[in-house]
Computed example of a mutant assay.
Amino acid sequence: MAGVKLFGCWYSPFSRRVEMALKLKGVEYEYIEEDLSNKSPLLLKYNPIYKKVPVLLHNDKPIAESSVIIEYIDETWEGPSILPKDPYERAMARFWVKFIDEKCAVAMWKACSSSGEEGEKAKEEAAQLLKFLEEELKDKKFFGGDNIGLVDISANFIGYWFGIVQELKGLELLTKEKYPNFCEWVDEYINNNFVKENLPLKDKMIEIFKALA
């Protein structure tokens, strides 16, 4: 445990991604909670470029950015594979993670935080992007097939965090009528025993979202 430390924040979906990856692999680690409004000197030292969580410290060597960290974890420790073994499937998993992070999550967060014409435009964009994920999940239990993998872990913001925000905001963007495949994945994902144990409590998330708002 002394050789593995994780700087994170309990309500960050990106931190939770990395914690899930470590636990899937059975890696013991020391968790260091960061106050994002008053970042520690160590966090700024280990991630001077982005200055954000998560940061994994392994044998005093820092790795930043959640998707990069997860790939490092998958390649470093034995245990269940997080990324597919097949080169093409690995490439596609990376593609969907990039799509989720750079397109979907951005548009969905904007749809929640914007109003008026800008908000409507963001909702339309998010709705179009969700259609791609809906199609990708056709005839699948998880993005990784029968088992939770990289894309599932990376989609946790949409699967859990966004659902809470949508409920608080009274939005009807992600619904079973519009996205039956995706909503079925959400149910499978958040009710999976392993995932359930590693998600922040809903009541606490509601408190933090209200405080941030």
Results as ranks from 00 to 15, higher is better:
residue 57 L to H: 12
residue 16 R to L: 15
residue 137 L to P: 08
residue 191 N to Q: 12
residue 117 E to I: 07
residue 198 N to W: 02
residue 56 L to F: 11
residue 183 C to W: 00
residue 77 W to Y: 09
residue 200 P to D: 01
residue 40 S to I: 07
residue 135 E to V: 13
residue 94 R to M: 02
residue 167 E to T: 15
residue 202 K to R: 13
residue 99 F to Q: 01
residue 50 Y to G: 11
residue 94 R to D: 00
residue 114 S to D: 15
residue 101 D to Q: 01
residue 194 F to R: 06
residue 49 I to G: 06
residue 182 F to T: 04
residue 193 N to Q: 13
residue 97 V to Y: 09
residue 211 A to Y: 12
residue 120 E to V: 03
residue 151 V to N: 04
residue 121 K to S: 10
residue 213 A to I: 11
residue 127 A to E: 12
residue 3 G to H: 15
residue 102 E to L: 10
residue 199 L to A: 00
residue 76 T to Q: 14
residue 38 N to C: 12
residue 61 K to Y: 08
residue 112 C to M: 15
residue 194 F to E: 00
residue 146 D to T: 00
residue 14 F to Y: 04
residue 126 A to I: 08
residue 74 D to H: 04
residue 84 P to A: 11
residue 208 I to F: 04
residue 65 E to D: 13
residue 193 N to H: 05
residue 72 Y to V: 08
residue 79 G to L: 02
residue 143 F to P: 07
residue 16 R to K: 14
residue 91 A to W: 02
residue 92 M to L: 09
residue 125 E to Q: 13
residue 161 W to V: 08
residue 58 H to Y: 07
residue 54 P to E: 01
residue 151 V to I: 12
residue 56 L to A: 03
residue 171 L to T: 05
residue 25 K to P: 02
residue 149 G to H: 06
residue 84 P to C: 05
residue 81 S to G: 12
residue 190 I to T: 09
residue 125 E to S: 11
residue 69 I to M: 04
residue 100 I to F: 13
residue 96 W to G: 02
residue 102 E to H: 05
residue 16 R to Y: 07
residue 185 W to A: 03
residue 194 F to I: 02
residue 15 S to E: 11
residue 15 S to A: 15
residue 109 W to E: 09
residue 95 F to Q: 02
residue 163 G to Q: 04
residue 117 E to W: 01
residue 100 I to W: 11
residue 162 F to T: 00
residue 154 S to Q: 13
residue 127 A to R: 14
residue 58 H to C: 01
residue 189 Y to P: 05
residue 197 E to K: 13
residue 95 F to A: 03
residue 100 I to L: 13
residue 122 A to Q: 07
residue 168 L to D: 03
residue 23 K to H: 01
residue 112 C to V: 08
residue 128 Q to W: 10
residue 92 M to R: 12
residue 57 L to I: 15
residue 172 E to D: 15
residue 205 M to Q: 05
residue 13 P to M: 14
residue 67 S to K: 06
residue 156 N to I: 10
residue 124 E to C: 09
residue 27 V to N: 03
residue 117 E to M: 07
residue 118 E to G: 05
residue 78 E to M: 12
residue 21 A to Y: 02
residue 3 G to P: 11
residue 23 K to P: 06
residue 120 E to P: 01
residue 97 V to P: 01
residue 69 I to R: 09
residue 110 K to M: 10
residue 75 E to D: 10
residue 186 V to R: 09
residue 121 K to H: 01
residue 44 L to E: 06
residue 82 I to V: 11
residue 203 D to A: 14
residue 155 A to Q: 03
residue 45 K to P: 03
residue 26 G to Q: 08
residue 151 V to A: 07
residue 142 F to C: 04
residue 120 E to N: 12
residue 95 F to R: 07
residue 107 A to V: 07
residue 22 L to N: 07
residue 119 G to C: 08
residue 161 W to C: 08
residue 63 I to N: 06
residue 171 L to H: 11
residue 36 L to D: 08
residue 129 L to S: 03
residue 62 P to W: 05
residue 181 N to G: 03
residue 186 V to P: 06
residue 42 L to R: 15
residue 138 K to P: 08
residue 117 E to C: 02
residue 183 C to V: 13
residue 154 S to E: 14
residue 161 W to H: 11
residue 79 G to H: 06
residue 78 E to D: 14
residue 113 S to W: 13
residue 174 L to V: 11
residue 12 S to D: 03
residue 5 K to P: 03
residue 97 V to Q: 09
residue 59 N to D: 12
residue 59 N to K: 11
residue 68 V to Y: 09
residue 69 I to W: 02
residue 191 N to L: 13
residue 213 A to Y: 14
residue 157 F to V: 04
residue 170 G to N: 01
residue 83 L to P: 00
